[in-house]
């Protein structure tokens, strides 16, 4: 369950999974600590996403995948 914190922070969980994870988060000090640590990561990734995806019709954000 703890590993869900990254997916939760990034907002890539399904709706039911979000609810499930939040119930866990309410009582898990470890996940609360990791949530705080990871909170800034999505905006850093956004910097990349927005700078690379200036044109809306071509969403793949970077060309590093083979």
């Amino acid at each position: 369950m703890h590993e869900g914190v990254a997916a939760y922070v990034l907002g890539v969980l399904d709706e039911e999974e979000v609810e499930e994870f939040e119930r866990h988060l309410d009582t898990c000090a470890r996940c609360q600590a990791e949530l705080k640590e990871m909170a800034d990561i999505p905006s850093r990734l956004d910097d990349l996403k927005h700078s690379a995806a200036a044109s809306e019709d071509d969403p793949p954000p970077m060309s590093m995948s083979r």
């Binding site: 890539v12 399904d14 996403k49 954000p61």
Partner: peptide, 18 residues
């Protein structure tokens, strides 16, 4: 690690889709 970050957040996909 890079692949899952790219295939989820950077491409606006959920875990299940990725």
């Amino acid at each position: 690690h890079r692949e899952v970050i790219e295939q989820t957040y950077l491409r606006d996909r959920t875990i299940s889709e990725a």
